[in-house]
Nucleic acid binder design. Structure first.
Lengths: 142, 142
DNA sequence: CCTTGACTTCGAGTGCGCTCGAACCCGTAG
DNA sequence: CTACGGGTTCGAGCGCACTCGAAGTCAAGG
């Protein structure tokens, strides 16, 4: 498989694939007789894995660390594992944070759904906070 | 409250606060007699909200759209609501994606925990995949 | 033989979101 | 009076992760 086809299959661009190779995320591809990159299908699995790391917010530096351990092979498994575990923990924390934000977002949206009951108008500019009863909670004015 | 204090309380830097003001994320601050920005505590709520949008991956462009609607005031509520709802949906999708990645990550880590049972060695360089029985699942060879 | 189209390397450019430094101003405490 | 610890504007620079264009090579098809 040459680079154009790998690009199609992996969803990366040929440019990005070469970029990943130069920085070390992808191994040096073997070349055919005319010096063009020739890929084995197994590279797709690795790219999919990289995509997952990327999706979960791992910076290229981190992926690079993992890629280097992988290249090193024998004996680096504990380190690789530790790296992934640390990353997993970060991702879990991130998911928790997002879910907390989702709750807040839902609240906010609910506020727009029932504007006549709103008591906090922190996101409404001054000139809009005119009448409106606004009972419940001691609003400063009135 | 002047900018230094707001920085402390909000967790943004004074630099960032000014930056947000110039691009329109924060309203033009009122000034004291020596032209220094003077903030009302209510700005903290708005900044906290912005932070949530940011945490959930909304680009500044998006926050800016919301901020402009907020400034416009009267009548923009449906649009603001739609904006937030669309964002919420994106965040939900993102959370789902992250959770899928977490599952894959857990699998991968489990693979490192029990290396003697691994069947997919896609991330192990060729020279490492030597012996090892690799029963269970029809591995291509054998 | 010539065209076509995918490949090659290289370095420069892009978009995002800050981040920083320079040079200057202002009010209060000692 | 002077030093200080804030504040002010302005524009340049940075880190990330690509993204793109130029100029050239190569092999197969008509």
């Amino acid at each position: 498989m040459k680079i154009g086809e790998l690009a199609k299959r992996s969803g990366l661009t040929a440019h990005t694939i070469r970029y990943y190779e130069t920085i070390g995320l992808l191994p040096q591809a073997s070349r055919d007789r005319s010096r063009q990159r020739d890929y084995d299908a197994s590279i797709l699995t690795w790219i999919a894995f990289l995509r997952r790391l990327k999706t979960t917010g791992m910076p290229i530096r981190g992926m690079l660390r993992y890629a280097r351990l992988r290249e090193a092979g024998h004996g680096t498994e504990p380190e690789r594992r530790a790296l992934l575990e640390a990353h997993r923990d970060r991702v879990r924390a991130q998911v928790a944070e997002l879910q907390a934000c989702l709750l807040a977002l839902d609240d906010k949206i609910a506020g727009y759904a029932a504007p006549h009951e709103r008591t906090d108008d922190d996101d409404v500019p001054i000139h809009e906070r005119r009448r409106e009863p606004a009972r419940a909670r001691p609003a400063r004015a009135r």
